[in-house]
Design a binder for these strands. Structure first.
Length: 262
DNA sequence: GATGACCTGTGA
DNA sequence: TCACAGGTCATC
């Protein structure tokens, strides 16, 4: 989600009000929910980008012709995707992904009438492009969730707290690393059953979500390694020196401190 | 709600 | 050669 925000800012900064001349869509598998390369090539040229929005990890770019609004161009970066505008990427290098520039990793792109480009570079092909996405499949964005809402979803779930926080239909934007970071900061074990959290813990979590998203968000992305959670086998907690635990929680590799996360 | 598939580059 | 990383989706 932090990468998505960096990408959104890059697009807002550099790609708005530029008219699409051509569409590069060499990978039909990368287009989702019925969109085909042929459709993209017939619909998008002639439109200009008018706004760059984001909900969780989903990037949404509004388009318009001179006379009417066009479709919303939605892009998902998966875990290894990046946006490049005129060949330049936003944010820092990714932690778990290739950062080279093999042309075959360009899964989708727009060529602007002024000669510039916007590309999605995604080595692992887990990203996606679609038109007019259903935004409501996502919960409220993590940057704006309120205490009452967080309390509501936590107290009525018997899943591990980490699984609840990572569920995009409940809160949009918290991925594996960011969720570990939030729980590390508040000292809560990711495997705790959500409904058993105390009100103090729920408050701390709600607060940590917005603080963490904001403080890490100003530094480019959650894959940059700019974290307190030490994510490698045999690591020790940077806060108290206790051994870090490596487990699977909510279906994902999870690191937590054996001492201060309870 | 939990699990495995999807996909592919990386490093051992 | 193989385990592993991640977000999302279909399936149990």
């Amino acid at each position: 989600m932090l990468e998505a925000e960096a990408a959104r800012a890059l697009i807002a900064d550099r790609a708005l009000y530029r008219k699409i001349a051509n569409v590069h869509a060499p990978d039909s598998w990368f287009l989702k929910r019925g969109l085909t390369p042929r459709m993209a090539r017939s619909i998008l040229p002639g439109l200009a980008l008018t706004a760059a929005r984001r909900r969780g990890k989903l990037l949404m770019i509004d388009t318009a012709s001179s006379s009417a609004d066009g479709p919303v161009l939605a892009m998902h970066l998966g875990m290894s995707g990046r946006i490049l505008v005129d060949g330049e990427a936003a944010g820092d290098p990714l932690l778990y992904a290739a950062n080279g520039d093999n042309p075959k990793w360009r899964r989708f792109g727009l060529k602007f009438a002024d000669g510039g480009t916007l590309y999605v570079r995604d080595p692992r092909r887990l990203g996606a492009v679609e038109l007019d996405p259903d935004e409501d499949r996502l919960g409220p964005d993590a940057a704006t969730v309120k205490l009452g809402y967080v309390r509501g979803i936590l107290e009525r779930s018997h899943a591990p707290v980490k699984a609840v926080l990572m569920d995009q239909s409940r809160i949009a934007g918290l991925g594996n690393l960011l969720t570990d970071e939030v729980l590390f900061r508040v000292g809560v074990d990711p495997a705790r059953v959500a409904a058993t959290l105390t009100d103090d813990e729920v408050r701390a979590i709600a607060r940590a979500i917005s603080v963490t998203v904001r403080t890490l968000g100003t530094r480019g992305g959650s894959h940059t390694g700019d974290h307190m959670v030490a994510r490698f086998p045999g690591a020790y907690c940077p806060r108290d020196g206790a051994p870090m635990l490596r487990r699977t929680v909510g279906g994902r590799t999870t690191y937590s401190c054996s001492a201060h996360q309870r």
